[in-house]
């Protein structure tokens, strides 16, 4: 399943992935599923923690190998996709 919204935070260091996520979620309808793509190891702890602190639903994560995303732009290489369902208004 591909999420409706992708926040590409690859190559960004903490706390920027979570800031980008929060900025996007502000404009989204409840129920929207968002994927955050990040290479920063801190995102593994911080995306779920953000969901808990801000009342959003954390759905899990998956590892994505280089080339899987089918996009040519942005930094290449392995990353993790963190999946979030918007519950509360951003």
């Amino acid at each position: 399943m591909r999420a409706a919204v992708v926040v590409d935070a690859r190559g960004l260091r903490c706390p920027l992935p979570v800031i980008r996520l929060a900025q996007h979620v502000r404009d989204l309808e409840p129920g929207t599923v968002v994927e955050v793509w990040a290479t920063d190891p801190a995102a593994a702890a911080d995306v779920p923690a953000w969901c808990r602190m801000r009342g959003q639903e954390y759905l899990g994560s998956r590892e994505v190998a280089e080339g899987d995303d089918g996009r040519e732009d942005g930094p290449r290489g392995d990353h993790t996709a963190y999946v979030v369902r918007v519950v509360a208004p951003g």
Binding site: P15, P41, A44, A45, D46, A49
Partner: peptide, 24 residues
């Protein structure tokens, strides 16, 4: 204990194990 303050760029394993925010 944030990653950006460590030499390894890894966040504190303590904060991560607790499931709390590691940045800031």
């Amino acid at each position: 204990g944030s990653a950006c303050t460590s030499s390894t760029l890894e966040p504190s394993h303590v904060l991560a194990a607790m499931g709390v925010l590691t940045h800031g």
